[in-house]
Design a protein around this nucleic acid. Structure first.
Lengths: 158, 158
DNA sequence: TATTGTTATACTCTATAACTATA
DNA sequence: TATAGTTATAGAGTATAACAATA
């Protein structure tokens, strides 16, 4: 390698960019996801929730009586990894685990009044934060983004 | 809790959905990202690359002489976590680490011919896989998605 | 004194196997 | 025999602190 070449390389580092990765949608998806995740985390942290536990709580609120196996399926996580999340939510009395009388292997998960209230507050805080980030997008653009993401996601299993 | 209520809850589990989480863009972002990441992983696995190492290699190819500190900055990972990735790429003779003569604290990272060729093949395989997923989107829609994702990402630091 | 690359380490997240109780 | 929930554990990925070499 000539000294001239080496000099060029050093100069180029000043304007190093990630443009080469932008042809891969996954790269942009990950970065957008990271921004969103960081913001949501900060928004719900005051409520003692993480994105994971907030998602679980939200789905229990909106799907009363859901069994853990179904919840794990929706969240696309292993049942074993859901246990600790449920344990914490139950200890904090945000949800209840009651045996399903029809099938005593299953539990029915339900949010307590306290859980519903906390979920509402956390959801509002998260939505308020999200508003700030998406302020550069019009409502129509936001809805287009949501729709395209869902079609992309669903396109994988066709 | 009455038996009637319990019965309702059990019935509702059959149609349990994640609709309640869809108001949070991050949820859709994560799921789309997961689909994309899984596909990219499978596409480049035959080349002995992970998404992480492929991204690093791609950026080294497109930014000759880039120092590790700048690469870590672009990839938004800690310098310490980049070391093992570089070690592996160097061991496989896909990149070279040479001291920057202007600042002997730095390294200049460069892809070898072998590294460039592998990156090209892996990129082609990844792009081919991506094509399949995004086949439900028109070219215009795909570009809209990319543009909206970048605006969303950049909206966070304004 | 500050920065680059590095090592060691801890912490979280995720994946797998095995167990129990129920069906 | 199969399934739901659980436990234990191992493997990634990520974050932090401290160090040597260099500026």
């Amino acid at each position: 390698m000539t000294q001239h070449t080496a000099k060029q390389e050093v100069e180029e580092t000043d304007c190093a960019s990630d443009e080469a990765m932008r042809e891969f949608l996954g790269y942009s998806l990950k970065r957008a996801y990271m921004v969103s995740h960081k913001n949501a985390s900060e928004a719900i942290e005051p409520f003692g929730l993480k994105v994971r536990s907030f998602s679980a709580l939200t789905l229990i609120v909106s799907n009363p009586g859901i069994p853990p196996s179904r919840l794990a399926e929706i969240l696309q996580i292993e049942r074993s990894n859901l246990v600790l999340i449920m344990d914490e939510l139950e200890t904090r009395e945000l949800i209840s685990r009651t045996r399903d009388p029809q099938d005593r292997r299953r539990f029915a998960l339900n949010a307590t009044l306290r859980g519903k209230r906390l979920q509402e507050k956390a959801a509002a805080a998260s939505a308020a934060r999200q508003e700030k980030i998406i302020s550069r997008l019009t409502t129509a653009e936001y809805e287009t983004l949501q729709a395209l993401l869902r079609r992309f996601e669903e396109g994988s299993d066709s």
